[in-house]
C-alpha cells in the first residue's frame, strides 16, 4: 500500500477531478498496481470483467461513504478491523439482497460479489482517502476508483477473451481460439503486464503534464 495521500484543500476539491484521478492518474490496476489478483482471476471473458467491475464500483462507493460518515467515531488504532467490518457488511448486504430480489443478476454476478471482501483496493481507498475526507469527496473518489477498476477490467478482459476464445461477450467473432493461453492464469499475467506497460508508455509520452503529481 503506498503512502501517497491526495492532499487537496477540501473547498477546492473538484469532484470531476476526483473521478478522473481514479480512472487515469491513480488507476487501481495500471498505476497503483493493487488488486491484481482479481484483475487476473476474473478477466478471462468480457462479461465477467464487466460484472466484476460493476460490483466493485458499488461496494467501493458505499464503503467510502460509510467510512467517511463514521470517521470521527473510529478510533485510529482499530480502524482496519472496522474498515473490514464495513467492507464485509456491504458485500454481505449486496449478496443477500441480490439473492433475494434480483435472481437473474445474482446468477450472473453471485460468484463475484463475495470475492470483493478480499480486495486490497477497497481497503486502500478507505484508508488513504475516505478516512480523511468528508462524505461527498469520498463518494466521488469511490466512484472514480470504481470506474477506473471497471475500465481496467473491461480493457484486460476484452483482449483476453478476443485472443483466448475468439469471442466477445460470448459471441464468436473469430472461428478459432487464437491463443488459448490468454484465458488461463498465465495469460492474465501477460495481459496485465503488457497493458500496464502500454498505459505507462502513453502516460510518459503524451499525458505527462496532465498527471497529478504528489
Amino acid at each position: 500500500m503506498s503512502e501517497e495521500v491526495i492532499k487537496l484543500p477540501e473547498e477546492k476539491v473538484r469532484y470531476r477531478d476526483l473521478i478522473i484521478n481514479g480512472i487515469v492518474a491513480e488507476n487501481t490496476i495500471f498505476k497503483l498496481a493493487i488488486s491484481l489478483c482479481p484483475a487476473i482471476a476474473v478477466t478471462n471473458s468480457l462479461r465477467n470483467g464487466f460484472l466484476m467491475g460493476i460490483a466493485v464500483l458499488f461496494v467501493q462507493t458505499m464503503v467510502n461513504i460509510t467510512v467517511a460518515a463514521f470517521r470521527r467515531f473510529i478510533h485510529p488504532r482499530i480502524r482496519l478491523p472496522i474498515f473490514m467490518l464495513i467492507i464485509s457488511g456491504w458485500v454481505s448486504v449486496a449478496d443477500m439482497t441480490m439473492a433475494a430480489f434480483a435472481r437473474e443478476a445474482y446468477k450472473q454476478m453471485g460468484l463475484y460479489i463475495q470475492l470483493i471482501v478480499a480486495f486490497a483496493s477497497i481497503l486502500a481507498r478507505a484508508e488513504m482517502f475516505a478516512s480523511k475526507n468528508r462524505i461527498a469527496p469520498s463518494m466521488f473518489d469511490g466512484i472514480g476508483m470504481g470506474l477506473g477498476f471497471l475500465f481496467a477490467l473491461v480493457v484486460i478482459s476484452f483482449f483476453r477473451e478476443l485472443l483466448g476464445r475468439g469471442s466477445l461477450w460470448g459471441l464468436q467473432i473469430i472461428p478459432t481460439k487464437p491463443l488459448l493461453i490468454m484465458i488461463l492464469p498465465a495469460g492474465g499475467f501477460l495481459a496485465v503486464g503488457i497493458l500496464m506497460a502500454f498505459f505507462n508508455w502513453i502516460d510518459a509520452r503524451y499525458l505527462k503534464k496532465r498527471t497529478v503529481h504528489h
Binding site: G89, S92, V93, M96, T97, A99, A100, F101
Partner: peptide, 14 residues
C-alpha cells in the same frame, strides 16, 4: 445487528 436484519428479511425470500 444490521446484517441480522438484512438476513431476516432476505432469507425466507431466498
Amino acid at each position: 445487528l444490521i446484517l441480522a436484519g438484512v438476513y431476516a428479511k432476505t432469507s425466507p425470500v431466498i
